[in-house]
């Protein structure tokens, strides 16, 4: 990939974006109202993620029962057909996937007011139908939308986005082609604050560039938060109007 010009001297990236531009972001909620309490379908660039939230509800087993708070479980299913090249094996028990599950669970345990739902379980099920770089960020956004749709109380939104570092320039929301060429960081940002609830660095990033990378990442996450907020508000308004017309 060394021949690939990730960032042209004119300041354009492979897909024509500038360094601080997000990819297309499209979301809908309540997409699976029959089979889950909350659900979302998210397209962030070419990432396509379906999230189903079941609960808060009676736990399936006593082992899941916590008298103080709800037990949160996250399961991630990266489908075999999600990448351009089909993978032969199921990703279900891969270490990478298990790690993602754990970090997502920890992030959302902090983001939700779980103490309001003692002795219950909340199960989050993610299906990655297509991935194209920064899929962890898309998963965070998908879960946030589905949890809010399920009516689970949250301190604030968590918005996820990845940032790459090409030479001296941070690149917002990298696709998979860019990911192969630059080091990336994935951030989970709480609401409109500068608090990070998740940060995953999978390659080396010079410490003195970190500040720049975080700054654009946080700005990008705030933008995503606004987009999610708009979707939720629009959905809420439609629902309320719909009910008002019929009550």
């Amino acid at each position: 990939m060394s021949r690939l010009e990730v960032y042209s001297p004119e300041g354009l990236r492979l897909d024509g974006r500038r360094w601080n531009e997000l990819r297309r972001f499209q979301a809908s909620i309540s997409t699976h109202a029959h089979s889950a309490d909350g659900s979302s379908y998210l397209e962030q660039g070419n990432n396509k993620v379906v999230t189903l939230v079941r609960g808060p509800g009676e736990p399936a087993s006593r082992g899941q029962l916590d008298g103080q708070r709800a037990t949160l479980r996250v399961s991630v299913n990266v489908t075999k057909f999600s990448k351009f090249e089909r993978s032969r094996t199921s990703h279900r028990n891969e270490r990478r996937v298990l790690e993602i599950q754990t970090s997502l669970r920890r992030t959302f345990e902090k983001a939700c007011l779980l103490h309001l739902y003692p002795r219950t379980a909340i199960d989050v099920e993610l299906h990655v139908l297509e991935q194209d770089g920064g899929v962890l960020g898309a998963m965070i956004n998908g879960i946030t939308l589905a949890l809010v749709d399920a009516g689970v109380a949250m301190w604030d939104y968590v918005a996820g986005v990845s940032v790459g570092l090409h030479d001296q320039t941070p690149l917002l929301d990298c696709n998979s082609l860019e990911e192969t060429a630059v080091s990336t960081v994935t951030l989970g940002v709480v609401g409109k604050t500068e608090k990070l609830s998740l940060m995953v660095v999978e390659d080396k990033i010079p410490l003195d560039r970190m500040e720049n990378v975080l700054a654009i990442g946080i700005a990008g996450a705030h933008r995503i938060r606004d987009l999610m907020d708009q979707e939720l508000r629009k959905h809420a308004k439609n629902r309320i109007d719909n009910l008002a017309g019929k009550q």
Binding site: S35, V50, T79, R86, H127
Partner: peptide, 11 residues
């Protein structure tokens, strides 16, 4: 051709 089936929910 590889046909991959994912059943999201079934009753």
């Amino acid at each position: 051709i590889f046909i991959d089936v994912l059943v999201l929910s079934s009753f």
